[in-house]
Design a protein around this nucleic acid. Structure first.
Lengths: 230, 230
DNA sequence: GTCTATAGACGGATAGAC
DNA sequence: GTCTATCCGTCTATAGAC
């Protein structure tokens, strides 16, 4: 392929849209107010986490520079280093919050629930979906940007993820034991149910007529249909 | 109900095939041989597309440099520009291939199918899942890296995506009309079914006992259960 | 705690030899 | 069609003034 002057113009357009990308760039998710579960930070530190989460969710970790974050917060880049020792530490913190929040929510849901596997699946799926669509930017960063962490820094989050998975697996296993759920496809069905919640932050927009709890109820119902023998 | 984990998959293989990149990096997906649907390119051009797709899938578009791509191909960076005018053009090409392949497969599936909405959903879901797990790296780049394209270059792919979605919506609508599917939650259920296939490339590993067609069959069965009134 | 200035590596892309 | 050499901008992070 031959190089032409059009290539140069092309690059210029790219640079321009990078500098002003909030106006022209595509994003992975609709614009929503960035929120984090309460109790995780406050003041400028919280502000940095919120804007980082928003930028990471929309453009990805690698495409987001510390200058972008600083500008969004309203400070200069070196000031960020008063709060976090590196850009990777910011991501690590967000990813950890996301995994902790989901695990705690799942554990609480199961604790507030009877021993019936059907009720337990309903509670877990509802909680899983609600967690993802209540904090959509957090869910997206937690799932999609984790791999930018060094293995050391990812390890803690991955351990939490494993515990969350175990909760789901154990409930499914007990349902099969009791003859309520189909056993032959349990692993695949569990993965399918998880996928529904994981993808929800990318497309779901709550409306007055159909909010986050409605989606959670619908998905819980779907999960039961998927698990029961037909 | 779980965020599926493909992060730790086969790290040694990833290291070896990743050409001196930071050899501790996590990846989003297990290491698999990069493949594209036939007929899209050949020779060095194909080689560039394959290695770019692999690197974009594992590390993301922004974290992959033209030097990484060139090294993986076995040439120097400036030589890439004989084949593609920019890094973004490489991504655009991959994303377009991904969207074209899925749309063509869905159209063919529907064409080879009777008018019964249940058979049609089975065929469409089977095809959707098969397309995603047959070309997992292509599916991941197509879905997750699209937003790095300028709106102009993304437009063609997004138009194809819309046509693919319309096929699914139309089949669902006809099923509701005929009283076979539940109408009240059709949009949400359709999104949930699509999510199952979209996430599959991240976690599914075919084995001799349970291959890609087995997953496609299982997911098709799940989709029918989800759509039918209970 | 915030700034300006800057180090030093790396980014995409181009020129021009062969 | 592949290379070496290079441009120039951006990157993360640090030094040091206030």
């Amino acid at each position: 392929m031959v190089r032409t002057t059009a290539v140069r113009a092309d690059r210029k357009a790219t640079i321009l849209s990078d500098n002003a990308r909030d106006f022209t760039a595509l994003t992975r998710v609709r614009a929503v107010e960035p929120r984090l579960p309460p109790g995780n930070a406050e003041g400028t530190e919280l502000h940095i986490l919120l804007e980082s989460m928003r930028l990471f969710a929309h453009h990805g970790y690698s495409a987001t520079s510390v200058r972008h974050i600083a500008t969004a917060v309203g400070i200069k880049a070196p000031s960020l280093y008063e709060y976090f020792p590196s850009k990777e530490h910011i991501l690590a913190r967000i990813v950890l919050i996301g995994h902790r929040d989901l695990l705690a929510a799942m554990e609480n849901a199961l604790a507030d629930c009877g021993p019936d596997p059907v009720s337990q699946v309903r509670a877990l799926v509802r909680t899983h979906v609600l967690s993802h669509v209540t904090y959509p930017l957090l869910a997206i960063v937690t799932n999609d940007e984790l791999h930018h962490l060094s293995p050391d820094r990812a390890a803690e989050a991955l351990a939490l993820r494993e515990r969350t998975e175990l909760i789901a697996i154990e409930v499914g296993r007990r349902g099969v034991e009791q003859g309520v759920f189909e056993g032959s496809e349990l692993a695949v069905t569990t993965a399918a149910i998880a996928s529904m919640g994981v993808r929800a932050p990318y497309w779901f927009v709550p409306t007055p007529d159909y909010g986050t709890t409605d989606l959670a109820d619908s998905f819980a119902e779907l999960a039961i249909r998927m698990l029961k023998p037909s």
